[in-house]
Amino acid sequence: MSIIVVTLQAVVSAVTFTGVILLSGILFLAQILNHHDRDERTDVSDPRSITAIVPVYRDADILNVSVSSLVESTVPVSVCIVCEPDDQASIQRARTLAAATDADVECRINTRYSGSKAGAINFAIETTESDYIAVFDADESVHPQFLRSAAATLEECDIVQGRTVPRTTGIIETIAYYESILLSYTGRRLLYYFTEFRMAASRAVVMHRSSVEATGGYDPTMLTEDYAFAYQCYKQGLDVREMTQYPSTIEAAHTVGDWWGQRKRWMSGYAQVFHALLRESLPPQNRRDLLSLGICLSTVAGNILLLSLTSKFMVLFIVSAETVVLLPVVTVVGITGLIRCVDYSNGTVERVGWGWLLTPIIFPLYGLVATKALTEYVISWTGEWYHVEKTH
């Protein structure tokens, strides 16, 4: 009897997982196939002033990627490179880039809130005056039409969040690309469909200055300052729009160690944000306080449950129900392969390749990282950070 019950649970999990991935994948495919935004949001006759903030730390080797792409934007933009006081290599590189171009590029030293990306962004916002604030990573290659389209969209909302696509230069980078598709974009479709919560990150994002001020800015104590910022935006009732047109490309982790360390930091950051929301929102003052707790808890728990799916699928193999296991595997591979083809046709990636065949391993790997990160956060986490070395 117990074997029958366990097998039934495994079958239900496989079918449910397949249905969620299939529906979410179709919704995301429909969104990136829709080119109406690309056609309608490029004519901005009087764009407001935009300051593009690029916080850097030990990013001297890749800083030219963001700066060179931003100065090619089809709207006027002021590029503000924010360096940490102890990062002389990035300071020198930023000053060299600023001097080498006729565009509005400047280097500022974060003397006010040094020590974090969040502090660098807050410092730049406080010391600039543009109507619109944009934030990008140093390794981010920004599409020349992105800021123009985002500025047009901001006439109707508070914040515009663009899509970022890891550059697939190797096997680890390719896994990061498909992970981005499955967990960052496809994985959020149903959440976005049923709630007003939207991710507002600290890269590929464009905002009204007043919107940032309403949230109090980014929290420098948070490992994942963007995840914490998204909840502050949601709790303040800000209208965040996702714009998948004109995606940026970014560097991914290049080694297994960096991949693991970066994701462990993210998972620890999610737990930290949930901990902070518990302190802020108990007892809940309104519906968004309550939903914030629920959404964040489901994210933390969902990442851990990814590992349990592996054990359930192993049960199906043991009872010779391989066909049921193939159902979610084929769905994951098929959805990611289709999205890769669309990204290729849009010029977002250079080739289709065969990496999509590896996508089923992403879920147990992510679940393993999440389980370790959460366990260590609860038992022994002391606030350590992890910095990924990037080259271009």
Rank of each mutant, 00 (worst) to 15 (best):
T371M: 06
R58N: 14
D43V: 10
N122E: 00
S49I: 07
T174D: 10
Q92F: 04
W266H: 08
T375P: 00
E322M: 03
T96A: 04
G383R: 02
S268G: 10
H35N: 07
R265W: 08
P55F: 12
H254P: 03
S320R: 10
M222F: 03
R209K: 11
P47E: 12
S268I: 11
H35W: 10
I318Q: 09
Q145E: 15
V20F: 14
V79K: 04
S13Q: 11
A200G: 05
V205T: 11
N346L: 15
A30R: 08
I172S: 03
V12T: 10
W266E: 05
T249F: 01
M267V: 09
Y366N: 09
E126R: 10
R163N: 00
W260A: 14
E129H: 14
V15W: 09
E72T: 05
A99H: 07
L182P: 06
Y177A: 01
N122C: 02
S292Y: 09
E213P: 02
I181G: 01
V332Q: 10
L338A: 12
G355Q: 09
E350K: 15
R108K: 02
A176G: 04
A150S: 07
A124M: 01
Q272A: 08
A214F: 05
T375Y: 13
D86H: 05
L154V: 04
D343M: 11
I159Q: 06
P220Y: 05
L297P: 08
Y366V: 09
L307P: 10
C233T: 04
K390M: 00
Q245S: 13
Q232N: 10
A373S: 09
A150K: 04
N34S: 07
V378D: 00
D104P: 00
D59V: 05
G119F: 00
A103E: 03
G302S: 05
R112F: 06
S141I: 04
L29C: 07
I21Q: 15
V71S: 03
L338F: 11
N346R: 15
E129R: 10
I3E: 15
T244H: 15
Y377W: 02
P85I: 07
I295V: 12
T101E: 02
E156H: 12
I304E: 08
S180F: 04
A94W: 00
T164F: 11
E350L: 12
L278M: 15
V319L: 05
V330L: 07
H208R: 13
S268L: 13
G383T: 02
S45C: 09
F194L: 05
Q272C: 07
Q92W: 01
P47S: 13
R198P: 02
S24E: 08
S345E: 12
V300M: 11
L223F: 03
L182R: 08
Y185R: 13
T371H: 04
S13Y: 12
L23Y: 13
F313E: 13
A370L: 10
R163I: 03
Q31K: 11
N34L: 06
T348N: 06
V11W: 12
W381Q: 01
F28G: 09
W266A: 06
G355E: 08
V329A: 14
P283M: 12
Q145T: 13
Y218D: 07
L326H: 05
E384F: 00
V378P: 00
W356I: 01
L238I: 04
L338C: 09
D43I: 06
L282Y: 14
V165S: 01
V332K: 07
